[in-house]
Design a protein around this nucleic acid. Sequence first.
DNA 1: GAACCCGTCTGAACACGTTCAAATCGCGTG
DNA 2: CACGCGATTTGAACGTGTTCAGACGGGTTC
Lengths: 231, 231
Amino acid sequence: MPTLDSATRDRIVAAATELIMERGYEKTTMRAIAERAEVSLGSAYYYFGGKEELVQGFYLAIARRQHELLEQRIDGVTSFGKRLDACFEAFLDASDEYRAISDSLLSFAIVPTSPLSPFSAQSRPARNQFLRTFEELVDGSDLKTDPRLREALPELLWIAQMLIVLGWVQDLSARQRVTRTVVKRLVPALARLLSAARLAPVRPFVTDALESLAMVRQRTYVGEQVKALGS
Amino acid sequence: MPTLDSATRDRIVAAATELIMERGYEKTTMRAIAERAEVSLGSAYYYFGGKEELVQGFYLAIARRQHELLEQRIDGVTSFGKRLDACFEAFLDASDEYRAISDSLLSFAIVPTSPLSPFSAQSRPARNQFLRTFEELVDGSDLKTDPRLREALPELLWIAQMLIVLGWVQDLSARQRVTRTVVKRLVPALARLLSAARLAPVRPFVTDALESLAMVRQRTYVGEQVKALGS
DNA sequence: GAACCCGTCTGAACACGTTCAAATCGCGTG
DNA sequence: CACGCGATTTGAACGTGTTCAGACGGGTTC
């Protein structure tokens, strides 16, 4: 399994990406990928463990596109609610391009032992991109909340975004308008909730939730050093 | 595609179930299933559209087992929190038996157009069983909440249970203890939240959430008549 | 130069899910 | 009984993802 950069490797990914976008994942054959990349079938398997591995690029592409769209749209906006809303919207816009293959992507992502799990070591680049986006989102905002919650927030929002995507794939309405509407409605409520986390009566809930998160983190990421939250 | 009851049909399901439990879904071949069921390969395809269809029985089995376990455990208990806790625990206990194949099950379930989607017409028997369980859970409890919320509650709890299962498959801790612990922690909070729904300051949130749910329902179930909530 | 190594590449071969034309069965009808 | 007809059954054949024994190529060592 070569880890060296290689033009061949890139050609195969490019061919796979093109074909998958043209015909969908299932209808794209390894033979077709090899042919377009001008390598033999065996070579494709020399560079990649299998067909599944060839979709890894999509996550990162979505993550980058979300970040790009978001930057354009929240320039100068400081309201946390507005920023979060723009963020999720950017994510859905970025995902739209890949809607036709989102089923396949999600099917792989859901398997915890798969390299395509969002928590896997192989997904680290895409995951980091997502987390950076949320970090920036919070940093540039006027949000005032419990500092412990603030620290965990990027990861929490990333997880929330994954829950949104679950609804999004299930959403059969035209252009997934239902998902967009529901997100638009829930974001303000979430913003208010996060602000309320500072108040004394709510704090035990926050503590409870954060402890749960800490527990979950320890047991979710596979083959990774998990940095503890809090110092 | 015959819909008549048939001993052959049952033999094939039985063979498939056995083999999948023995070896897992991927390693079970249609040829092996046909052989054990003492039919030809072609016959298996005469009765079932494909390999995927042969896992339909698992959902219903889990739903029934949950109900069975729950009945034993909440006899006489009226506290809503305790009943809900027991319910989720019964669900996780029922699911444990199928943990080895839960990846495959979930991979199929996540595809909205698949007959194995929990929202599909084919999943209706299992879905109804789940909803009945939650209906009974709420009915026999001391929960006092907003009546509109009360009506939507079985479905909401069912959805919550599906979110739990998402965490459960990702949970790599021994015997999925993390998931169980987190559920145990969050249930009381949820119970308090539902009680609080009666209070005036919270009501707008409830209205908002229920409207969102109504929207989602209209666009999620495929090929089904969706009964409106409220009369 | 010869021998050797090792990273790269090849396509035939395998096992699988699925399809299908043809064979067989069961049974009502003339 | 013979005939016909639809339901059922069959296994060969197809296209697929994947594996593997071997071929190739260029660099290093004696």
